[in-house]
Simulated assay, not measured.
Amino acid sequence: MSAVRAIVVANLLRQTRDRVGLFFMVVMPFVTIMFVGLAMGGAADARIPVAVVAADGDPTAAAVLRELSSSPALEVRRADSAEEVRADVRRGAVAAGLVIPQGSTRFDLVMTQTSGSGMAARSEIDVAVGKVSAVMEATRAAEKAGAGPELAAEHVRAAQAESAAVAVRDTGGDSGGPTGFAYTAPANLLLFTFINSMAVAAALVESRRIGMVRRTLAAPVREGTVLFGEALSRLVVAAAQALLIIVVSALMFGVSWGDPLGVTVVVALFCLVATGAAMLVGALVANPQQAPAIGPPLGIVLGMLGGCLWPKEVAGEALTTIGYLFPHSWAMDALLALTRPGSGLGTVWTEVAVLAGMAALALGIALIVFRRRALRVA
């Protein structure tokens, strides 16, 4: 264990001397979480601003406005024109806008498809419009059955009162998912843990290039000890990055990560995947400059496919399906699922099993390849 400790300490000391690497580990994740999180709605309990154009005196518009205003997730702002709504959406003053023409039942929704807060606002608007539509349809049905307008309205109000007493229990289905910091914190944990793990693979390449690994093996140290020490060094960096994001995002942005055991297992397995990827890159590339040139771009692409840069529904079904070939999608699904009340490790056992298989595969291949190349000077 003393040899393993010496290898880990030497690698970590080398990492602390890399100021650029420390910036991307310590500062950049939180800058990204803050700005992207604000763009997606900020704190988890923040109300999403929406603009509404509606004519005074229009009963349909008044009903929709009442439903929107009753939503705890929305902050409804009145606008004077459709052009004003579009301008507000473009500059980010509101997440979405709804234009209700006088006397019409066809509304215009204004939003940006790549906006997470816009998608959340659309979900709330759909619910509000659906409720109003249901009331209108029920009123028409009552009138067709022979009831007068006043009696039809009375029947609808009675039906609404009865339906309000029905309790709806959340069984864990997708209700739109978290937004704001609650989304960007786990997304950036996965993104930066993987990217920075791949970036520090350059140190492994440098160790091979200058013959440090070969000289270590010249000492009375087993080959497996060296492999374990190098892998543990990368795992410590990945775990430190993940732990830093979890702690700081909870303290600075009020992010609730959910069940501690579930989060620990998911994050640990993802760190093992990132470690295997870093070891593989460090074993395959020929010089230290190639590792940061290959690793971070690959990490960004996988993050895009896995929903770490934007919600998966924005990418479309085809890209989302492809994303499940890689660990980011499974880890992202697991971390988001764990934020739901009542969720625990048992809720994400499928994701955990897949991540465990991916971690074993990545580490197994990486150690085999590195073992074969460890005695060679790149």
Rank of each mutant, 00 (worst) to 15 (best):
V273T: 07
P292K: 13
A337R: 14
T320E: 05
D58K: 06
Q160I: 11
G306C: 06
L217C: 10
V85C: 01
G306P: 08
V132S: 03
V9N: 05
T105N: 13
A164Y: 12
A39E: 10
L302F: 01
V89H: 01
F270K: 02
T264A: 15
G303N: 10
V281S: 10
P296G: 01
D108R: 04
R77K: 06
L284P: 03
C308K: 06
M198V: 11
A378S: 14
T179V: 11
G57Q: 11
I246L: 15
R86A: 15
R14Q: 13
V265M: 08
M119Q: 13
L269W: 02
T225R: 00
I294S: 00
V267D: 06
L325E: 00
T179W: 14
A286W: 09
V314Q: 12
V265N: 07
V301P: 04
V26N: 05
G176I: 01
G57Y: 07
G316E: 07
L280R: 04
S329F: 03
V166K: 14
G148I: 10
A374I: 15
R17D: 02
E313F: 14
L345P: 09
A145G: 14
P288F: 11
V314F: 01
V281R: 09
G116F: 04
I368Q: 13
D333P: 06
R140N: 11
T321H: 03
G254N: 13
G21E: 10
V248K: 07
H155F: 15
L261H: 08
A145I: 04
N287W: 14
G92S: 03
A337M: 01
G173W: 15
M332G: 01
L345M: 05
S175C: 13
I195Y: 01
A121W: 07
N11D: 15
P297K: 01
R371H: 02
P178T: 08
G37T: 08
G176H: 09
E351G: 02
M304I: 10
A10T: 12
A283D: 07
V237Q: 10
G258A: 04
R122T: 03
V4G: 01
R340C: 06
P59F: 03
P59R: 01
T347G: 06
I322R: 00
F24C: 09
L232K: 04
V99C: 10
R77Q: 05
C271F: 00
R372I: 03
S175P: 14
V31I: 14
P327E: 04
